[in-house]
């Protein structure tokens, strides 16, 4: 009994370590002091300031659009890859696997600056095209992981049966494959969206001058002096991430239920 209490206290301490700084940050968004200092005085000043801060609004829009485009591209690439990969030889599969998971193990710092060097090598200029390409490369593994789990557990014979009954490849995909993997596609897309939305390193290296995303705005506010609205922005970012996470959780949970329900019939 005593042991259990010690265990619970331990868990609570770890949770405090994980969450207290973030809670303080959120709280400070409602503090009047512009230097996040005590004593605490409630104010909505910084949220109000946000309404008139067009720089931050533009950055937020950029973040969302970039993450959205990245998510869509990642889902398309990942779906095609995972479906096609089943027909490749084992040797090729091994190569494909290590290439596709590579951006997960290489520090993003290196991925970002190698793309920067690529741009310079061909004497091109920084553009949103390369930022998106960078975001796609680092977010793709996450979409792949989610989709792979789903496709590997899928019954391949259904597709074969559909083909043997005379359906063409497109019809088979539309009628059989797509309904089975669409929840994983949505979840994978959200996951890639989140990775891109949160990414700092790639954007930092590749963003054209004058364009920014929310993480870049936070970094520059830390570097060049505090913008007190940043606390408010951070709170909003956390909420966006939480909503995305909840959506992924709901979809995956829901899909698992439907899968099991379908199988038991």
């Amino acid at each position: 009994m005593k042991k259990n209490i010690v265990a619970k206290i331990y868990v609570i301490l770890i949770m405090l370590y994980l969450y207290v700084p973030i809670a303080v940050l959120m709280l400070m968004g409602f503090n009047k002091s512009r230097y996040n200092s005590m004593p605490f005085e409630f104010s909505l000043e910084w949220y109000r300031a946000l309404i008139s801060n067009t720089t931050l609004q533009k950055a937020a829009l950029n973040s969302v659009v970039l993450a959205f485009v990245t998510g869509i591209i990642c889902v398309i690439l990942a779906t095609l890859f995972i479906l096609g990969e089943r027909y490749t030889s084992n040797k090729l599969k091994l190569i494909f696997n290590s290439v596709s998971m590579m951006p997960m193990s290489i520090p993003w710092l290196i991925m970002g600056l190698s793309l920067l060097l690529l741009i310079r090598f061909f004497a091109l200029s920084k553009s949103m095209f390369f930022v998106t390409a960078g975001h796609v490369v680092i977010s793709l593994p996450y979409s792949l992981l989610v989709l792979k789990a789903r496709v590997n557990s899928m019954d391949k014979s259904l597709e074969e049966m559909s083909a043997s009954l005379g359906a063409n490849a497109f019809t088979t995909f539309k009628r059989i494959t797509f309904p089975a993997i669409s929840p994983a596609m949505i979840a994978g897309g959200f996951l890639s969206f989140m990775i891109s939305f949160d990414n700092f390193a790639i954007s930092y290296f590749l963003m054209p001058a004058g364009v920014s995303t929310l993480p870049i705005e936070i970094q520059s506010s830390i570097k060049f002096g505090f913008t007190p609205e940043i606390n408010a922005v951070s709170t909003i970012i956390i909420c966006v991430s939480l909503i995305c996470l909840a959506v992924v959780g709901l979809i995956m949970g829901f899909s698992f239920k439907t899968i099991f329900g379908g199988n038991s019939k």
Binding site: I76, L77, A78, L80, F81, L83, G84, E85, Y87, T88, L92, F96, V99, S100, M102, P103, A133, V136, V137, L140, A169
Partner: peptide, 12 residues
């Protein structure tokens, strides 16, 4: 059929 892996592989 394995050709549909190419877009992802080429991108990477």
């Amino acid at each position: 059929r394995q050709a549909i892996t190419f877009p992802a592989i080429i991108t990477l």
